[in-house]
Write a protein that binds this DNA or RNA. Structure first.
Lengths: 227, 227
DNA sequence: AATTCTACTGACCACCTGGTCAGTAGAAGG
DNA sequence: CCTTCTACTGACCAGGTGGTCAGTAGAATT
């Protein structure tokens, strides 16, 4: 992350008192999540935060670096919340693929409810942002993505899968479905009140269950039915 | 579509000779597919097309209307190509869902290979574009989308589905997988020779088969195995 | 009290945006 | 030949954009 003490790229910002930091961060989150990277305006940010224009660039250097900082903030908060929720949900990870994915989905939903702007910001960063920023982010978080994918497989009960099935391919398939579902609903999500978003999230949860039932019948042995 | 002769919103453009029209369209397609609506620049378009700035607005009125026109062009080309390919593939539609989807998938892949930019433009229009434009497009193409979905179901052999399965939901599921796959591979197509693209399409075909096997086991009765 | 140093500021900059409209080239009509 | 008309043009506009830097207020040092 950005906390490498040797570089301290954002030292000017992090030296500030936390209340002031938060006011600035909030303004950035609001602006970036509402408009994405390109359409977000640094002028709008300083106006909203009530700080001088020069300060923003004194603290962060450039719009690009500001964005990277805010995205990093979002990712940190997301993963922290993610860990916390899945930690006190269950001490042990379930051995079942679908239960794992449900658990992750639930944690994600919780975060969406609590911090809709941060979630949107974080997610859009990998979709909307200009190519060079996107690739930098992908590079930056590649290891996180990899360990996350690895953790999904560690200690997984592979005996539930039909013998003639390639487990990696099956996981791929299920991920494809979840990814596709998310992409399909994303546009609607962008223009919703938190209450409507919450309702939609629950609807999606039901839909996911339906699909999971079908997928289980396809890739699990018959003795592992839908619960 | 936009061809309502009573309004003739784009008459100034469509009066031009086709070569000139095409040069302008190409520039628009390039710019919009590369940058999306918001970040696309009308100045960049006129520069690329080698036409005066005023002409663009004389022909199309505004950036917004230009975009709607180009998206419409993309949709027309897409559906035309789609019809053509599926027409000379087979005279009769197969009764099997997966065969139908394979056929459609093949047609779509052909279009992706032949016109990657147009496909991207068309696809992104419903994802990236500003809310008001997106909703106008959705309204505009709602009926097309509906008939297309209807046609997928007409004369479909529903007896193959397990009795406890919601056929609509099952179709949704399979579409989700295909859509996800296309989107995953789309970026690769943009920077490929036709030969490599063709090879990749065949690879994807194999992958689709794998997923279809699993899905069939999940939603079809046992007596309809993978072929 | 004078000086140095540091953190910060805001007027300013060059550049870009979508859009306009008085003006013009050239065909058509008289 | 002159006029009218039409299709088209490009210099221009107001309103942005991200970014800069000479200048300053106030704390720290002498």
């Amino acid at each position: 992350m950005h906390s490498d003490p040797a570089l301290e790229k954002y030292a000017n910002f992090e030296r500030l008192d936390t209340g002031y930091q938060q006011r600035i961060l909030d303004a950035c989150i609001e602006e970036f999540s509402r408009n994405g990277y390109e359409s977000a305006s640094t002028n709008a940010i300083v106006k909203r935060a009530g700080i001088p224009k020069g300060s923003l660039f004194y603290f962060f250097g450039s719009k690009r670096d500001l964005y990277l900082y805010v995205v990093d903030h979002a990712v940190k908060r997301f993963t922290a919340e993610f860990e916390r929720i899945s930690a006190d949900n269950r001490a042990e990870e379930p051995a079942d693929l679908f239960e794992r994915l449900e658990q992750r989905g639930e944690a994600r939903m919780q975060f969406v409810i609590q911090e809709p702007l941060l979630y949107q910001l974080f997610f859009n960063a990998f979709i909307d942002a200009p190519e060079d920023i996107r690739s930098e982010l992908q590079l930056h978080y590649a290891s996180y993505y990899q360990t996350s994918a690895q953790r999904l497989q560690d200690g997984l009960d592979r005996s539930r899968f039909k013998d003639d099935i390639d487990v990696e391919k099956a996981i791929h398939l299920v991920n494809l479905v979840l990814e596709g579902l998310y992409n399909r609903y994303l546009p609607a999500f962008k223009t919703m009140t938190p209450a409507d978003a919450l309702r939609l999230v629950e609807e999606i949860g039901v839909e996911v269950q339906t699909y999971f039932e079908m997928l289980k019948k396809g890739i699990y042995k018959p003795k592992f039915p839908g619960k």
